[in-house]
Design a protein around this nucleic acid. Structure first.
Lengths: 151, 151
DNA sequence: CTACAAATTTTGTTACAACAATAATGAAGA
DNA sequence: TCTTCATTATTGTTGTAACAAAATTTGTAG
């Protein structure tokens, strides 16, 4: 469905404007579907994102700074995000002994198991969204988006 | 900058995953810049969006349903959004006489003037974002995004 | 060794999003 | 007319986002 129909625009839109609407709207579609996927697990997409960053650390602890800079959507209060994960027993949090300003966050077995359970569903989500584009088009889309946001 | 560098990923990512990250991240870039633009005017992007919908009505009032379905990002509580615009004197709100369940929202002179003031800045924002792509690439990007989100 | 600046995280506050529950009105049928 | 259902909008509640201010620890210049 074209973006003009979606927002029921009566006038035809400039292409530069359309790109913005298309990106914003497509992001909403992605998020909505992803939140739907996560809902049964009582996990927000941000929380999931942090868990995956922690798994990517392969046993090394991550401090708040590291987590923040690896998040797609930078979130000013990582502390409270970690609080939630702590409550669910999905991560541990300890003061770093070398530098007591820092905090070491680690994913727990329970967190790892949850991710393992989610992995196939997330993969399916990613593949299903991209299923209307062939490999070449996907690569092209990546290139264009990267080029688009370069200032 | 490539999306892998941005999220400081150590492993190389699948293209289907990269598309998602690219769309989400690009949307963040767009929003951040747009909010920056609106900040001096004490207007949120949602509020701006509603004002533009109202101007698009060309004098005809819009009720809540109409506003909602034309918003790019559907927002469950349009009522409170309109409340804010009312407080600033940018819109009027009245009960529809034909059907008293409905509400007629209209943009005021003040609202129209604000939009007129913003128009060139918004245009500049749109053009500047798209400035790294030529016309052909922009159209291609629109096509690919539309195709991408089709289920 | 003290004082001051930088780095890192936490907390407070305000506003907004999501979702369900409620209210108000209208429409249609027994 | 009365009941019931559908439509439209508002409100309540809970959680989260944004942003600034504060707190804690470290490094360093005098």
């Amino acid at each position: 469905m074209k973006i003009e129909e979606i927002i029921k625009s009566t006038v035809s839109l400039d292409d530069a404007k359309k790109v913005i609407l298309n990106i914003v709207y497509t992001q909403n579609v992605i998020s909505d579907r992803f939140n739907e996927l996560l809902k049964p697990y009582d996990l927000s997409s941000e929380q999931f994102n942090v868990l995956r960053i922690l798994r990517g650390q392969k046993g090394n602890p991550a401090n708040m700074c590291v987590i923040q800079e690896r998040m797609v959507t930078k979130n000013s209060n990582t502390t409270r995000l970690i609080d939630k994960l702590l409550l669910k027993g999905l991560v541990t949090r300890e003061v770093c002994p070398e530098n007591r300003r820092k905090i070491e966050v680690l994913i727990t077995e329970k967190g790892l198991n949850l991710l393992t359970e989610l992995d196939p569903k997330v993969l399916e989500h990613e593949k299903s969204l991209a299923s209307n584009l062939n490999q070449e088009e996907i690569i092209l889309l990546n290139t264009l988006l990267e080029k688009y946001r370069t200032l």
